[in-house]
Amino acid sequence: KNAAQIVDEALNQGITLFVADNRLQYETSRDNIPEELLNEWKYYRQDLIDFLQQLD
């Protein structure tokens, strides 16, 4: 998997990933985040941060 796929997957589930103060953050109206997504975000944290910062 790559960062773009993970960001896309999150968006499809109503979750927006973004970077604030060099930390990976998310916004969602969901009550909870599936644990497998959280684990994936932790595992790919630096890739996601790098990818999202390139988009800014």
Rank of each mutant, 00 (worst) to 15 (best):
L11G: 06
N12W: 08
N2P: 12
E40Q: 07
R30Y: 08
E40T: 08
F18Q: 05
T28V: 04
Q54S: 13
F18S: 09
Q54H: 11
Q53S: 15
S29T: 14
D31P: 14
A20R: 14
G14M: 05
E9H: 07
L37R: 03
E9G: 03
W41L: 08
E27P: 02
L48G: 00
R30W: 08
K42L: 14
Q13R: 09
E40K: 08
R23P: 01
E36N: 11
L38T: 06
P34H: 05
V19P: 03
V7I: 13
D8C: 14
K42W: 14
Q53G: 11
E27V: 14
T16G: 04
D47F: 07
A3C: 06
Q46V: 10
V19W: 13
Q53Y: 09
L37G: 01
N32T: 13
Q54Y: 10
D31K: 05
T16Y: 14
W41N: 00
E36L: 08
A3W: 05
L52K: 00
E36A: 12
A3S: 04
I33L: 10
R23K: 15
I49Q: 03
V19R: 00
I6H: 01
Y26E: 01
I49W: 04
L55M: 13
L52A: 01
P34I: 03
Q5R: 08
E9M: 05
S29K: 13
I33N: 02
I49C: 06
Q5F: 05
E36D: 12
N2A: 10
V7E: 00
R30P: 03
R23C: 10
A10W: 04
R23W: 08
L11C: 09
A10V: 02
E36T: 12
L24N: 01
N2C: 09
N32Y: 14
L24D: 01
K42H: 15
D56T: 13
N2V: 09
E36R: 09
A20W: 10
E40C: 05
P34G: 06
L38V: 09
Q46I: 08
D56Y: 08
N2R: 10
K42V: 12
L37W: 08
N2I: 09
L38Y: 07
D47H: 09
I49L: 08
Y44M: 05
L24I: 07
Q13W: 12
N39C: 06
D8A: 15
K42M: 15
L17T: 02
Q13P: 01
L11D: 05
G14N: 06
F51A: 02
I15E: 01
L37P: 01
R45T: 14
L52N: 00
S29Q: 12
L11A: 13
N39Q: 13
Q54I: 09
G14V: 02
Q53E: 10
D31V: 10
L17A: 01
A3K: 01
D47P: 08
Q46L: 11
D50Y: 11
A3I: 11
Q13Y: 13
P34K: 05
A20I: 14
Q5L: 10
L52H: 01
A10Q: 01
E9W: 07
D8P: 01
Q25F: 15
N12V: 13
Y44P: 01
I33R: 01
S29M: 12
F18P: 02
D56R: 04
F18A: 05
K42F: 14
Y44A: 07
Q25P: 01
A10K: 00
Q53A: 10
D50K: 11
Q5P: 01
D47E: 14
Q54N: 12
R30H: 10
T28D: 03
E35N: 10
A4S: 10
N32E: 13
Q54C: 07
Q13H: 13
D8F: 15
Y43S: 09
W41D: 00
I33P: 06
V19C: 05
F51T: 02
K1P: 04
I6F: 02
N22Y: 07
R23H: 11
N39M: 13
I6R: 02
E9L: 04
T16H: 14
T16R: 15
N2L: 12
A20L: 12
E40S: 06
N32C: 09
E35S: 11
I49P: 00
G14Y: 05
Y43F: 12
Q46K: 10
I49D: 01
W41V: 05
I49E: 04
D21I: 03
L17N: 01
Y26W: 15
E35D: 11
W41R: 00
K42S: 14
N39S: 11
Q53F: 07
E9R: 08
E35A: 10
I33A: 04
L37Y: 07
E36V: 10
T28C: 03
E36C: 05
A20H: 12
A10S: 04
D47N: 08
D50T: 12
Y26P: 01
L52I: 07
L24Q: 00
F51V: 02
I15C: 03
L38R: 07
